[in-house]
């Protein structure tokens, strides 16, 4: 076993996830929110890889899931940014508080 215990990785991932969540929930800029979400996805990947190394070493599943998660994250970022750019073009803002067409 490596000299770094599993819990260290998990704590780093937990902290990164919390910071990302803070960024995603507190930012006004839609791009800033997206960046926070990317951080959260990264935290999840740290967990997946750490569990692969410490729990299921001989298998592929942990890293495989991480790769799929990266793929989905990239697709999500591409479409989300396209949406943000479309909104910017029509409404001239990327401030989520002003994008409230669907609010009741």
């Amino acid at each position: 076993m490596p000299s770094v215990p599993l819990s260290w990785y998990l704590i780093v991932a937990a902290l990164l996830f919390s910071i990302g969540a803070y960024g995603a929930l507190s930012r006004r800029n839609a791009i800033g929110i997206l960046m926070g979400i990317e951080l959260m996805l990264n935290a999840v990947n740290i967990n997946l890889v750490a569990f692969w190394r410490y729990v299921e070493v001989e298998g592929l599943a942990g890293q495989m899931f991480a790769i799929i998660a990266i793929t989905v994250a990239a697709a999500e970022a591409a479409v989300a940014l396209a949406l943000i750019l479309a909104i910017y073009r029509t409404r001239d803002t990327v401030n989520v508080e002003e994008i409230d067409l669907l609010k009741w």
Partner: peptide, 8 residues
């Protein structure tokens, strides 16, 4: 980006 991921 799409091609980069395909590469992976």
């Amino acid at each position: 980006v799409i091609f980069d991921i395909e590469v992976v």
